[in-house]
Design a protein around this nucleic acid. Structure first.
Lengths: 352, 352
DNA sequence: TTGTATGCGTTATCAA
DNA sequence: TTGATAACGCATACAA
């Protein structure tokens, strides 16, 4: 015996194919009693829906839009690549993706982009951006038109998104704090904290988590005020020098990007390998630093997972189908020299 | 425009549907010239085959078998649960799974089971077992009958499997070693290594990796000979006591299962939280110990990922389709108190 | 060597 | 509120 089909259900329930379909897809216009009869038959026969056939018959394809900030962040670039790869895979399931890079800092341009998407018959939108009132409104606008929106990497807690795909930044910061506390040993020590900017919610949350753990579990450690570099390597070097003049440093926590600049600055000061360095996200540079023993731990999220999860969740939302929480749960990964995953094969470069 | 179909190819090439199908599936009975014309059309239109529709038309379904050792290992039980859950998902894609638990230690029973599967029209087999000559032969037998076989959790390097789904045990051991070295600080210290048995390849490999890193990067640390408990909690307590009498212990590395017994023994000796404990796999017990601060790091592989990956790879092998290496690559996860993922919802218990 | 017609399991558009 | 019936993209038995 092969698996029961909708035809079997129809026969068993004494109704037509169309009615079974209506019940299956929770479409209106069926009497309560009929619904019950169909559901009974489904349960009796142990029917399992064939997704492949369903998708085929729908011959509907889903156009998803993914919005990522432009700029030269290695992490975002890696994510963009992963998105393209996931999209290629998803094309098999009638899901296509349109990747859009928007000028960072320009919230209004982003909002305009989002508003524009609403008219293009888009089935879902994923957006990675800091939360602003303008963005919140744009998201609400989309959702009012029944277009699902998911937040990517950075949560938008007050925008009313359908889902958040990423990790809890505060917990990520706590993890960094725990590692820093354990890696720097037992004596008293000062920990430098470096960031390009503290305007981003992620950086703030990470710092908060980091401090929490250090304060509670490693009272002998002292996390210094954040050194903001604003992307200027000289600022970083100068700042570090100043911190050093006030006493020895046991570790450096890099809140965001800037691995290259940090490695350079530490190298100049002859500190490479002498202080514990912990950072976020696995990029070409952090990977190299990890391999070279200049970086001791990376807190990361898997971009491939992030990308596939995004497309799957958007698809589920578009279908109003439930989400497999277990599968979509992103992990806060800890990457050390010894568990560094092999370099992924270089995909075709994203044109933006 | 939507994607080109076989019909479009047929029209473009000026042949019929059936001919296109013949070319597509490399079936005989087509003139060289016609083949060329069809392939030309395919290239011109950028045709991508819809595998889902193809399988639907074939009305093909896949019966996979997954063989797991029986017994009360928490990890295996968790994996079994994850398998059941993944199977439920996969049923939607015409893939069904038959989970078989075999008596551990009994290689011949396992081999007989495998041989039996060959006759049942199974589309693929996944097996978690230590490598033995008998098992190797059984695997070869299956593969001779064109049934793909994948090794699960523990590799079978000489059995000629189609794929290995799991992590490199030696690298996992190295990771444990690195963490142990860093967590136990700078001074000289002795590290106890505990295992239920050193007969399993995994345990040996982990120990090897652990020693490598400790020797190379932490010369002040001394990894003591493995304390084999053979599942007897008393043996563990006695052994630990003996090690203690010879001097202070800085850390304990638990090579395999036995979290509960270890926690109990350490508790009795008043060592809980005073020595660094590192173990493998996230189970109910290790999770609790991690939360309580009695266990400091767990090296784990994600059972959900393992399960889904297994079914996906088996399916791909059955279709002779390529595998998305990036997606199937299992990570050596490091779990600390701060990045412990939320407890998954309890699935229905596996009956075995 | 090639073409026609039908079916796979589901959805969707009609009409009743 | 229900039911025929025609797609969806591909495979295949059978006819030419």
């Amino acid at each position: 015996m092969s698996r029961p089909t909708v035809n079997d259900i129809a026969r068993e329930a004494g109704v037509s194919l169309a009615t079974v379909d209506r019940v299956l897809n929770a479409r209106p216009g069926v009497r309560e009693k009929t619904i019950h009869a169909v559901n009974d038959a489904i349960a009796r026969l142990g029917y399992i829906r064939d997704m492949a056939a369903a998708n085929l018959a729908r011959s509907r394809s889903y156009r998803m839009a993914v919005l990522l900030p432009d700029g030269d962040s290695q992490f975002v670039q890696t994510l963009a690549d992963a998105m393209q790869e996931a999209a290629q895979q998803a094309a098999t399931n009638r899901t296509e993706m349109q990747l859009v890079r928007y000028p960072p800092e320009d919230t209004h341009a982003l909002a305009a982009l989002l508003a524009g998407l609403a008219d293009e018959g888009i089935a879902g939108v994923a957006v990675m951006a800091p939360e602003t009132p303008v963005l919140r409104d744009a998201v609400r606008g989309l959702r009012q038109r029944a277009i699902p929106v998911v937040a990517l990497v950075s949560d938008l807690p007050n925008a009313g998104c359908d889902h958040f795909i990423g990790v809890d930044s505060r917990a990520a910061g706590r993890t960094a704090g725990l590692l820093m506390g354990r890696f720097t040993g037992n004596g008293p020590r000062r920990i430098a904290v470096v960031a390009e900017s503290m305007l981003l919610r992620d950086a703030i949350e990470r710092r908060r988590g980091f401090d929490e753990v250090l304060l509670a579990d490693f009272p002998e450690a002292e996390a210094l005020p954040t050194l903001e570099t604003h992307g200027a390597p000289e600022a970083l070097a100068a700042g570090l020098r100043e911190l050093l003049s006030a006493g020895q440093i046991g570790g450096v926590y890099l809140l965001g990007s800037g691995h290259r600049a940090l490695t350079a600055a530490l190298g100049e000061m002859g500190l490479l390998g002498k202080v514990v360095v912990i950072g976020h996200e696995l990029t070409r540079h952090s990977r190299a630093a990890l391999t070279a023993g200049q970086l001791h731990a990376v807190i990361a999220q898997n971009p491939g997972h992030l990308a596939r999860s995004t497309l799957r969740v958007l698809r589920a939302k578009a279908d109003r189908a439930p989400i497999d929480e277990g599968q979509e749960q992103l992990r806060i990964e800890i990457v050390l020299h010894e568990n560094l995953p092999p370099e992924p094969v270089e995909p075709a470069r994203t044109s933006h």
